[in-house]
C-alpha cells in the first residue's frame, strides 16, 4: 500500500516544479481515496446481492454514495441465462435506480411509453406533453417507464398511479378519468423498408399497446383507483407534433388503420 514510510517524498522537478504533499497528508488522502474507490467498487460489482454479509457490506458505502447521487446499479437488471430464461424478471428492478448507460438491450421496456388520461367527455391529456424534448421528455418517459415496468405485478402496479393520481387529475382538470400507460412498439428493419404504410408507419395504431389501465378518481383526501384489464390494442394517443390523434379523422393518412 502507498504508505508514507515506504515511499520517498516527491522531489521538486528541475527546481521549478512545486513539491507534492507532505507524508502525513499523503497518508490521509490515500486513506480517503481508498475508502472512496472501495465504496465505488462495491457499488459497481455488488448490485445483485444474495448473502446477508454481502448486503451488509454493500449497505454502508451505499449510504455514502446515495448522499452523492452515485448509488446506481450499472447493469440493465436483466440477464439471460444459458437456458434462455430471463433472470431476474425485467419488471422487478426500478429503471430509475439503474444508470441506463447501456442505452438498450432490445427489451420490451426499451421503447417509448406514454401516460394518457381521458375522461367520459372524451377529453384526453398525454404525458410527455406535445413539445417536450430533451431532458423534459426523458423525465416524463421515466415515469411512464416505471409504470409500465410495474404493470402486471399485482401488489405493486397501483402504487405509482395512486401516488401520482391526484396531481395528474388536477393537471388535467378532471374529477375522474381513465389512466393508461401506452407502449409504442418499434418497427423491425424489414418493416421500415416496406412500402406497406401499415408496416412502415412508426405511429400506426397497431403499434400501440396498453400495458396498464385504471379508473381513477379522488374522494376526499384519498385517491381511488380501480384497475381495468389492459387491452392489447387501442386508439392512438395525441400526436406530439400536430396535437391531433393519430388514427383519428384528419390526421396523417398513413396512420389510418
Amino acid at each position: 500500500m502507498p504508505s508514507s514510510q515506504r515511499a520517498e517524498p516527491l522531489p521538486p522537478e528541475a527546481g521549478q516544479e512545486p513539491a507534492g504533499p507532505s507524508a502525513q497528508m499523503r497518508t490521509l488522502v490515500s486513506f480517503l481515496l481508498f475508502a472512496h474507490l472501495f465504496s465505488l467498487g462495491l457499488s459497481w460489482t455488488m448490485w445483485r446481492l444474495s448473502s446477508p454479509m454481502r448486503q451488509a457490506l454493500r449497505r454502508f458505502p451505499g449510504f455514502y454514495l446515495q448522499l452523492l447521487g452515485m448509488d446506481v446499479a450499472p447493469d440493465s437488471g436483466i440477464v439471460r441465462l444459458p437456458s434462455g430464461e430471463l433472470y431476474p424478471s425485467p419488471r422487478v428492478l426500478p429503471k430509475s435506480r439503474r444508470a441506463l448507460w447501456h442505452l438498450t438491450q432490445g427489451d420490451a421496456l426499451d421503447v417509448d411509453h406514454f401516460l394518457v388520461l381521458r375522461d367520459e367527455q372524451g377529453r384526453q391529456v398525454q404525458w410527455p406533453p406535445p413539445g417536450a424534448v430533451g431532458l423534459r421528455y426523458r423525465r416524463y418517459q421515466m415515469i411512464a417507464w416505471e409504470m409500465a415496468r410495474l404493470a402486471g405485478i399485482e401488489d405493486t402496479e397501483n402504487v405509482l398511479p395512486a401516488a401520482l393520481g391526484r396531481g395528474l387529475l388536477r393537471e388535467a382538470g378532471m374529477q375522474r378519468a381513465t389512466l393508461e400507460c401506452r407502449r409504442l412498439l418499434l418497427r423491425a428493419p424489414e418493416e421500415a423498408r416496406s412500402n406497406d404504410p401499415t408496416l412502415n408507419d412508426p405511429y400506426h395504431d397497431s403499434r400501440w399497446v396498453t400495458v396498464y389501465q385504471a379508473r381513477i378518481w379522488v374522494e376526499g383526501d384519498q385517491v381511488r383507483l380501480l384497475k381495468l384489464e389492459s387491452q392489447a390494442e387501442s386508439s392512438g394517443p395525441v400526436n406530439r407534433a400536430s396535437g391531433t390523434r393519430s388514427g383519428s379523422p384528419g390526421s396523417n393518412a398513413n396512420s389510418q388503420p
Binding site: W44, P74, D75, S76, I78, V79, R80, L86, P90, A99, W101, H102, L103, T104, Q105, G106, D107, A108, D110
Partner: peptide, 13 residues
Amino acid sequence: LTVLVQLSGGGTG
C-alpha cells in the same frame, strides 16, 4: 461497465 453490460446481453430482444 457500459460495454460489459451491453455484451452481457439479456432482454427479451
